[in-house]
Simulated assay, not measured.
Amino acid sequence: MTYCVGMQIDKGLVLMSDTRTNSGVDNVSVFKKMHSWTVPGERIITVLTAGNLATTQAVIGLLEERNKAPGERLNTLFKAPTMFEVATQVGMLLRDTIAKTNAINQTTDGPTATTKFTASIIVAGQIKGMQPRLFLVYPEGNFIEASLETPFFQIGETKYGRPIILRGYERDMSFEDAVKLLMVSFDSTIRANLSVGPPLDLMVIEKDNFEALHSRRITPQDPYYLAVSAGWSEALKNAFHALPDYSLYSK
């Protein structure tokens, strides 16, 4: 399992992902789930992946191979004229990779094979002359775009961190507050689910900058992460005790 979030605010995009993958409690590994490509002054494209690791790595590998020879191919992230076309390309690759993997599974394990390989991807970025855009790509290859009503996307283990973002999100919030909000969301998810864990990858993309304004890996010992985790726990306790007491004897 994993947890990734892409958030759109007025100032740009804020992205965060964990790095934990596991095949049982005794086989836990760290793999990067945030991948980015930049043409300085012209475009920045970042994807976050969740789901079957072999499937998502195959998609990223295909994107990398295409991008190595952009002059020879039209269907590369460097040649795509819009972010919509980028999401379309990623969706087609994801759909075809899943279909191929499941077909091989059917061939090797027979028609009664129960294992199904699936994945989902968040696509974020900006191309010069256009607005920053954020997409959620489904395993079937189709996708939806972030909007005023749906300004953020989550993939993976979403249920523990979602209420926090819903309560704290504001369209005009600063990058600093957006990062803090995602830190709390990830901390709550990590505490509730062992299949999500640090290190965390963070990227901030400022509108019209076309390169990462801020990018770093956050370790479990990171002072700011620890301060947010401890502060949020204390704030929740204080808020709980500040609520009106319930009386067993009131009518």
Score class of each variant (00 low, 15 high):
Pro163Arg: 02
Asn22Leu: 06
Phe84Asp: 15
Val228Asp: 03
Leu248Cys: 09
Ser188Ile: 11
Val39Phe: 15
Ser233Tyr: 14
Val25Ile: 12
Thr88Phe: 05
Pro244Tyr: 07
Leu213Phe: 03
Ser36Arg: 09
Arg171Lys: 14
Met83Trp: 05
Glu170Trp: 04
Thr101Arg: 15
Gly24Ser: 07
Asn27His: 14
Glu211Pro: 02
Phe210Glu: 00
Ser147Gly: 01
Gly61Met: 02
Ala230Lys: 15
Val14Ala: 05
Ser229Pro: 06
Asp18Pro: 01
Val5Lys: 06
Leu148Met: 12
Lys79Cys: 11
Phe117Thr: 15
Leu148Phe: 13
Ala239Asp: 12
Arg43Lys: 08
Ile104Tyr: 07
Ala146Pro: 06
Ala99Ile: 11
Ala212Asn: 07
Tyr160Asn: 12
Thr19Gly: 04
Ser247Gln: 06
Gly91Asp: 07
Arg43Leu: 11
Asn105Ser: 13
Glu157Pro: 05
Pro139Trp: 08
Leu13Val: 04
Ile122Phe: 00
Pro111Tyr: 10
Ile164Thr: 14
Asn142Arg: 09
Thr189Ser: 07
Ile9Ser: 09
Thr107Lys: 11
Glu42Met: 08
Ile155Glu: 02
Ala99Met: 12
Ser23Glu: 10
Gly24Gln: 08
Val196Phe: 04
Met130Asn: 14
Phe135Asn: 15
Thr189Phe: 00
Lys32Thr: 06
Pro163Glu: 02
Asp177Gly: 00
Arg73Tyr: 09
Glu140Arg: 15
Glu64Lys: 00
Val39Pro: 03
Ile98Phe: 03
Pro81Gly: 09
Lys180Val: 03
